[in-house]
């Protein structure tokens, strides 16, 4: 019997027509064509009487199914064109939650970077970009760390298998954003208020270290810059980034490229410097900072008799994780790209 074949064709034709429809008027025309008084489906029903009695029931059922299918696809198309759902129960419809558009996620590192940039911008800092694969010279020598110096051990540096440059030494994955300091100075524009945020690499991997990570580096070079200015800028950052009532504290440390050098602490958000279970004596370590060493200024072509400066360079991820509320306990998640992790930010 070829009726079933016809029925299939009718459905296909309808779908094809619906697909091409783009206006409500066109849709209405199709509805009349199929579901109207003289419509295709009505005509089909009238054919039921033309077949032998024993087949009538079966055919009737098939046409009924087709009609239901046809109604379904048509109302679907209508919903798409008009934006109104085909519902009968309006109470239910009105009580539905909204259907959200599919929105993705900007990575937490990008969010952290933007937050940092926004804080330093009003102070006149401008973000710059320097090479991530860099010469050893800019990563160490220019920063007052000669080739044989033990201080270099502190940076677990990745070396690249490439011919060394006569002047600039070996090629490395820059282990810190400080490699941008002398490059910035060599641009020759003074004063300097630089914010260098960049991808770095070190040869370590554990709960608090990953081989790729981001640092943000502030560098200020100007006349009459003193430690109190560094302190002021750090306090400004701390109160904007961590919370209005938070303060920083400087402790002695040593870096070859700053003199004096500091370790920067922030008072614990829980006990505010009194000491509690979560912190060390009321303070948490943020990172390193210092007054730019005269040898670094010299490498950057700047007269240290006339100019002084300060610098700080900290891990973006680490700093962001110290912000209360983030609660990320393993830094490796940040580069793990598990979508169940990423969707939380």
């Amino acid at each position: 019997m070829n009726d079933s074949l016809n029925l299939e064709n009718i459905k296909k034709e309808l779908e094809e027509k619906l697909r091409k429809v783009s206006s409500e008027q066109d849709l209405l025309n199709i509805q009349i064509e199929y579901f109207g008084k003289k419509g295709i489906l009505r005509q089909l029903f009238s054919k039921v009487l033309e077949v032998p009695v024993e087949q009538r029931k079966d055919l009737g059922e098939k046409i009924n199914n087709l009609k239901k299918e046809a109604e379904r696809v048509t109302s679907e198309r209508r919903a798409k064109i008009t934006g109104v759902e085909a519902v009968e129960n309006t109470d239910l419809y009105d009580s539905l939650p909204g259907r959200k558009p599919e929105i993705g996620h900007i990575h937490i590192i990008s969010q952290a970077i933007n937050e940092i940039v926004d804080i330093f911008k009003p102070l006149g800092f401008t973000r710059v970009r320097y090479p991530e694969v860099e010469w050893e010279y800019y990563a160490f020598e220019a920063l007052n760390m000669p080739l044989t110096h033990p201080a270099r051990d502190e940076w677990e540096t990745f070396f690249i298998n490439a011919a060394p440059d006569k002047k600039y030494g070996r090629m490395v994955v820059t282990p810190h954003t400080s490699s941008g300091q002398v490059r910035e100075m060599l641009k020759g524009n003074l004063p300097i208020r630089m914010l260098n945020i960049s991808r770095c690499g070190r040869r370590q991997i554990d709960i608090s270290h990953v081989p790729s990570f981001y640092q943000f580096e502030g560098l200020v070079v100007d006349k009459e810059i003193s430690t109190t200015h560094l302190k002021g800028v750090l306090d400004y950052f701390a109160s904007n980034f961590f919370g209005e009532d938070r303060k920083t504290r400087l402790r002695p440390y040593h870096f070859r490229f700053t003199e004096p050098s500091f370790e920067v602490d922030i008072d614990c958000g829980i006990c505010h410097g009194k000491g509690c279970k979560l912190c060390k004596e009321g303070w948490l370590e943020l990172g390193g900072a210092g007054m730019v060493h005269p040898n670094v200024l010299k490498a950057g072509g700047i007269d240290s008799k006339e100019y002084t400066g300060f610098a700080f360079g900290w891990g973006v991820e680490r700093t962001y994780m110290m912000k209360s509320g983030t609660k990320i306990d393993d830094i490796r998640y940040l580069f793990g790209n598990d979508l169940r992790f990423l969707e939380q930010f």
């Binding site: 940039v117 102070l123 006149g124 401008t126 973000r127 710059v128 970009r129 524009n189 003074l190 004063p191 300097i192 208020r193 200020v220 100007d222 006349k223 009459e224 810059i225 003193s226 430690t227 109190t228 200015h229 302190k231 002021g232 800028v233 750090l234 306090d235 400004y236 504290r249 400087l250 402790r251 002695p252 004096p260 500091f262």
Partner: peptide, 22 residues
């Protein structure tokens, strides 16, 4: 160091052309 007061930067704001790539 902890006895030092904090001061915000004064002086000339550097004239730089922003890197638009960011």
């Amino acid at each position: 160091y902890y006895n030092l007061p904090g001061k915000l930067l004064t002086g000339e704001v550097p004239l730089v052309h922003k890197d638009l790539s960011f």
